[in-house]
Amino acid sequence: MITLPPEPQDIERDQQPGDRAHFLQVFLSQRSQMEALVNRRVGCRATAADLVQDLFVRFWRRPLVQVEELSTYLLRCAGNIAIDHLRSEGTRVRASEGLMVEPPDSHGSGPQAALEAGNDLRHVEAALRALPERTRQIFLLNRIHGRKYAEIAKAMGLSQSAVEKHMMRALEACKASLREPEPRPPGKAP
């Protein structure tokens, strides 16, 4: 979470007008760098612009922080806001996965089918967590957020072929996780 000074109860601005002008000048000069940094982390230019705008509003509403190098501080805050966004997205995805209704199972129903489906889901989740960050991010942008390969390639500064290769790796890892046999506890016969 980005740590900003607490918002005062009565919003009195005791800063000099020059402080606000300096902040605005530095923020505007760093905006493209902050958006590029956030874009690299979240993989979406529009989201990056929104997050940097939110960062501006947070700073503008609160008393300004006195820091040695404001431009460096802003970049660090932009990186932190990107991380916060990714964490909240991960939480949202996990929550929505928990709310998804399973389609009727044509191979059977009941506790055994539910147990097998739960095991399959855990295997796929573990396989996705084991992927390199970029590959996992590309997979999530495509499969969860519905982005096309060309959109992902443009947003991440990759070729469409590279995005396709990352997706093939991710899908192969998911398939392989479902083919691996369940490890048996020691002493148990098959």
Rank of each mutant, 00 (worst) to 15 (best):
S106A: 15
E68H: 14
R62T: 04
H145I: 04
R129E: 10
I11T: 11
D120E: 13
R31G: 01
P181E: 08
R62N: 01
V163H: 10
E133A: 14
S106M: 10
Q25N: 14
M156A: 13
A49S: 06
V57Y: 15
A21C: 08
L28M: 05
S177H: 02
K154V: 04
S106Y: 07
Q53V: 05
L99G: 00
S29I: 00
A126L: 01
D120Q: 11
S29R: 12
V57M: 12
D14S: 11
D10R: 09
P6R: 04
G146W: 09
M168Y: 09
L86H: 03
H145R: 04
A95Y: 00
A162D: 02
E69C: 11
V163M: 08
E68M: 07
V57L: 14
A95N: 01
A153S: 03
R41F: 05
V52Q: 02
P103K: 02
S32A: 07
A189V: 15
N39E: 08
F59Y: 15
L141D: 01
L121K: 09
M167I: 01
R169D: 05
H166W: 04
P8D: 06
T72S: 14
G79D: 07
L64E: 06
A126W: 05
S106W: 12
R61C: 06
L128E: 03
I11P: 03
A36M: 02
D19H: 10
R92K: 05
L158F: 09
L141K: 00
H85K: 03
G18V: 09
E125M: 13
Y149R: 10
I152F: 08
R31N: 01
G79W: 02
H85L: 02
V65H: 11
C44A: 08
A173L: 09
I83N: 09
V42R: 08
A48D: 03
V124N: 00
M168F: 14
P132F: 06
P185Y: 08
R87I: 03
D50G: 07
G90M: 00
S71K: 04
P190T: 09
K188P: 10
A170W: 03
G118Q: 07
I11E: 07
R45L: 06
D120T: 01
P183G: 08
P8G: 05
S71Q: 08
L70H: 04
S88C: 06
I144P: 12
E116V: 10
A162L: 06
A46N: 13
R134H: 13
G118L: 06
P186K: 02
N142C: 03
R87P: 05
S32P: 12
P132W: 06
L75M: 12
M1P: 15
P186D: 01
Q15M: 10
Q53T: 02
L121R: 13
E133P: 15
Y149H: 12
A176Y: 09
L75T: 04
V124E: 01
S96I: 00
A48S: 01
G110C: 10
E164H: 15
R61S: 05
V38C: 09
V67F: 15
F27K: 02
Q16W: 06
M168N: 05
A36Y: 07
R169H: 13
G43W: 00
P181L: 12
L99I: 02
E68P: 15
A155G: 12
S32C: 12
A155M: 13
A48V: 01
H123P: 11
V65W: 06
L115A: 11
E151A: 12
P190M: 08
E133D: 10
C174G: 10
V101Y: 13
